[in-house]
Design a protein around this nucleic acid. Structure first.
Length: 252
DNA sequence: AACCACTTCAACCGCTTTTGG
DNA sequence: CCCAAAAGCGGTTGAAGTGGT
């Protein structure tokens, strides 16, 4: 059977958008709204697929997009939410005003995932790597020593944040960059070492180095300390014994 | 100075979900 | 209720930039 193509591919431009195209798209949407994305390119006079227009608008041109590096708080929040929601980037992005799912996905794949790996945590599950996977966690770090405790703490945090997430549909709080529905997120303080939110030009003078970049080894001692600290802070989450709601929502 | 390897991120592709007739 | 179209989403790609040798 097969789906009908999203657009007629003949005559359509692909690749990076030029400033003129951006301007056309912005002006058109300002004036008419995006309406049907499929018909927008023709109406606006763009030789682009509607899908491409939507992506360009939502990921780059939207006036409420927040450009620039992620703050430490934003990175913490992304890690927290990823532990709960997994790779549901759009859901995560909805909690970070001005950030797009694509941006968060890129942040995760290029920075945060590596940091979790360095801590001996599986970036998919946020659980410690099992001992039978020595290449993943080559050194006996506190992360592996605390495996059972980590898992327990993770589930507690997960439970709490999942419950909070039930309210995600309501407008985010003004200070939501550092909080989830008012709950201050202060976990993984060292995973989210400030480096990636710092422009490259400043990284050299930054004493607070990225654990990955801090040494020739992909994982430094700092990462061991950070997993302890993260663990302690994770334990600070209030305990909620009612986990029943997890059966319905989140956690695939 | 030139080359190579690695990183980053904008954009594309294809699948899934939602919506409307 | 069903089906097709449209929109949304996540995975992946590839060009550009950067750093190391």
């Amino acid at each position: 059977m097969g789906r009908t193509p999203c657009c007629n591919k003949q005559d359509l431009k692909k690749g990076p958008w030029g400033p003129e195209e951006d301007e056309i798209l912005i002006n058109y949407i300002k004036e008419h709204g995006h309406g049907s994305w499929r018909s927008l390119p023709k109406l606006a006079g763009l030789r682009r697929c509607g899908k491409s227009c939507r992506l360009r608008w939502t990921n780059y041109l939207r006036p409420d997009i927040k450009r620039g590096p992620f703050t430490v708080d934003e990175e913490k929040l992304v890690i927290q939410l990823h532990a709960i929601l997994g790779n549901r980037w759009a859901a995560i992005a909805s909690q970070l005003p001005g950030r797009t799912d694509n941006e968060i996905k890129n942040l995760w794949n290029t920075h945060l995932k590596k940091r979790l790996v360095c801590m001996g945590l599986d970036p998919l599950t946020h659980e410690p790597f099992t001992p039978c996977a020595p290449t993943a966690a080559p050194r006996s770090s506190p992360a592996t020593r605390h495996m059972a405790q980590w898992e327990s703490a993770r589930l507690e945090a997960e439970a709490r944040l999942s419950k909070e997430s039930l309210f995600f549909n309501s407008p985010p709080p003004p200070n939501s960059q550092a909080s989830v529905s008012g709950v201050t997120v202060d976990v993984y303080p060292n995973i989210t070492g400030s480096s990636s939110s710092t422009p490259k030009s400043n990284q050299m003078e930054d004493q607070d180095q990225d654990p990955i970049d801090a040494s020739s080894s992909p994982c430094s001692n700092e990462s061991e300390d950070s997993s302890d600290t993260a663990f302690q802070l994770l334990l600070d989450f209030p305990i909620n014994n009612d986990m029943s709601f997890l059966e319905d929502d989140n956690v695939d």
